[in-house]
Simulated assay, not measured.
Amino acid sequence: MKFVCEAAARPACTGAPGCAETLPCEPESVRRARSLITSALNVWVIEELVDAATLIVDELLTNTIEHTHCRTARVTVRRLTEDRVRIGVSDACPGLPLMESPGKDAENGRGLLLVDALSERWGYDRHRAWKAVWAELRLRAGRPGSEGRRKHGMGKQPPPPPPPAPKPSGPRPGPDREPIPATC
Rank of each mutant, 00 (worst) to 15 (best):
1 M>Y: 05
5 C>W: 01
6 E>P: 07
6 E>L: 14
6 E>D: 09
11 P>A: 15
14 T>S: 12
21 E>C: 06
30 V>F: 00
35 S>F: 03
35 S>T: 12
35 S>R: 12
37 I>K: 04
39 S>C: 15
39 S>E: 14
41 L>C: 12
46 I>H: 02
51 D>P: 04
54 T>M: 11
54 T>G: 02
55 L>I: 09
59 E>R: 07
67 H>M: 04
72 T>S: 12
76 T>L: 15
76 T>H: 02
77 V>Q: 00
79 R>Y: 01
79 R>G: 09
82 E>H: 07
83 D>I: 00
85 V>F: 06
87 I>L: 15
87 I>M: 05
97 P>I: 12
98 L>G: 00
100 E>Q: 10
101 S>A: 09
102 P>S: 07
111 G>C: 04
113 L>R: 10
114 L>P: 00
114 L>M: 13
115 V>G: 05
117 A>M: 08
119 S>A: 15
120 E>Q: 13
120 E>I: 02
122 W>V: 09
124 Y>D: 04
132 A>R: 10
134 W>M: 05
137 L>C: 11
137 L>R: 08
138 R>N: 04
140 R>S: 05
142 G>I: 08
142 G>R: 03
149 R>K: 09
150 R>V: 09
151 K>V: 14
152 H>R: 14
159 P>G: 11
161 P>L: 11
162 P>K: 13
167 K>D: 11
169 S>I: 05
170 G>T: 08
178 E>N: 05
179 P>M: 07
181 P>K: 06
